[in-house]
Simulated assay, not measured.
Amino acid sequence: MQLRAAHVRVRVPATSANLGPGFDALGLALGLHDELEVRALGASGVRVEVRGEGAGTVPDDETHLVVRALRAALDHVGAPQTGLHLLCHNRVPHGRGLGSSAAAVVAGVLAARGLIAEPEALDDDTALALATQLEGHPDNAAPALLGGLTVAWTDDAPGSHDPSAPARVRAVRLAVHPDVVPVAVVPPGHLSTKAARGVLPAQVPHGDAAWQAGRAALLVEALGRRPDLLLEATGDRLHQGYRRKVMPSSLALVDALRAQGVAAVVSGAGPTVLVLARRTPGAPDGTDADAAVAQAFGGVMAGWRVLPLPVDHAGASVTAMLD
């Protein structure tokens, strides 16, 4: 496999996973994007420039997540490694449950797709599999790559009866009702995914699992055709309650909003709160959550940001640049 382009531009959306009951399976792409330019260099080495989120804190060498994903993708298709110059314009907040690491991984894989002579070797199925290997789970990677609402899952490798064989990763993209208006309520502090997962139990009651399965199925219907069911459909018994001790303010906000009839959940591993609001009939710029969010803040939640973010229906993209 040869390299075809020397300069590509990649655009990847923020994402919110879980959406309440869809733990490690459901994800939604949001209209907030990281954009980066990647240049293949004749000389060896890596130069990374970061502007915006993560500037001065993320690595600027081979350990940068985009670089690691790009190199893994080149290795996968047998393409030669090259020197790299990355210019990253980051808008997705880091450590807030909005898929910043998935955005970086998908960006690296898509950059490799743009650089190689046969981009079909890194089609969406392959890109999702590679991203999942680096991420550990596909719930953010799938919507970042495909856009819209996605359901992601893994199954046994085709034809394999070996339990140690790598699982196949799959995802489907579903339509989102136009009246659904996501709103991210972003706190000033961050929380690592490792810390958020570390408080989850190894086992949950069978009754809770059965209850959760019904809500997850209902959520697909609510997001696609019945937004009036969003409050009931976003109930959760598997992860948010266990995480209360590591993000008490976030769960307090979720409780306050849900008490007023607003479909609010923890976004991914948190601590951002995602509101799945509905457009108000007769007021195209208003939603059923506006008053509840304003009341919940009440001047007390200093440093939090309220970001209305439309659904991103396009997903990640890569464009070859002509210098």
Results as ranks from 00 to 15, higher is better:
305 R>D: 11
186 V>P: 12
121 A>G: 05
47 R>K: 15
124 D>C: 08
265 V>G: 06
136 G>Q: 07
156 D>K: 15
181 V>S: 12
281 P>S: 08
122 L>H: 01
156 D>Y: 10
269 A>T: 13
263 A>K: 02
211 W>V: 05
240 Q>E: 15
106 V>T: 00
211 W>N: 05
307 L>H: 09
306 V>G: 07
223 L>T: 15
80 P>L: 02
322 L>A: 10
270 G>A: 13
228 D>H: 02
121 A>C: 02
261 G>C: 03
93 P>W: 01
207 G>N: 08
199 V>L: 10
274 L>F: 09
187 P>K: 01
42 G>H: 11
182 P>H: 07
148 G>V: 14
24 D>N: 03
145 L>Q: 01
323 D>V: 09
178 P>T: 09
31 G>I: 04
84 L>W: 03
60 D>L: 15
219 L>N: 13
76 H>C: 10
193 T>Q: 07
261 G>I: 03
283 A>N: 12
166 P>Y: 02
41 L>N: 01
16 S>T: 09
129 A>I: 09
154 T>V: 12
104 A>S: 14
288 D>Y: 02
56 G>L: 03
287 T>M: 02
199 V>C: 11
206 H>K: 00
65 L>H: 01
7 H>E: 14
315 G>W: 00
151 V>P: 13
299 G>V: 11
70 L>G: 03
139 D>A: 04
68 R>W: 14
67 V>P: 07
50 V>K: 13
137 H>K: 12
191 L>G: 00
292 A>L: 05
274 L>T: 05
247 M>T: 04
114 G>S: 02
283 A>K: 07
59 P>F: 10
79 A>M: 07
301 M>I: 02
177 H>F: 02
307 L>Q: 07
77 V>H: 03
125 D>P: 08
218 L>E: 05
8 V>L: 12
18 N>M: 02
24 D>A: 00
322 L>Q: 04
214 G>N: 08
230 L>N: 00
207 G>R: 05
127 A>K: 09
223 L>N: 14
126 T>F: 06
130 L>N: 03
277 A>Q: 15
110 L>K: 12
145 L>S: 06
296 A>H: 07
153 W>Y: 12
286 G>I: 05
304 W>I: 15
100 S>I: 09
304 W>N: 11
81 Q>E: 11
243 R>Q: 10
196 A>E: 04
320 A>L: 07
129 A>E: 11
227 P>A: 01
277 A>Y: 09
44 S>N: 08
76 H>M: 08
264 A>P: 10
158 P>K: 10
291 A>S: 14
314 A>H: 01
294 A>R: 14
169 V>Q: 00
27 G>V: 08
215 R>G: 10
75 D>H: 14
172 V>Q: 04
196 A>V: 04
185 V>A: 13
20 G>M: 10
242 Y>F: 14
132 T>W: 01
299 G>K: 15
99 G>C: 12
136 G>Y: 03
126 T>A: 11
275 V>Q: 09
101 S>Y: 07
216 A>Y: 05
281 P>K: 12
216 A>M: 10
21 P>M: 08
111 A>E: 02
177 H>K: 01
166 P>V: 07
301 M>F: 03
238 L>K: 01
57 T>S: 07
83 G>F: 08
89 H>M: 15
26 L>G: 08
190 H>K: 08
77 V>M: 07
117 A>W: 11
216 A>F: 04
117 A>L: 15
120 E>Y: 01
247 M>C: 06
208 D>I: 14
45 G>V: 13
2 Q>N: 05
29 A>V: 07
108 G>L: 05
308 P>D: 13
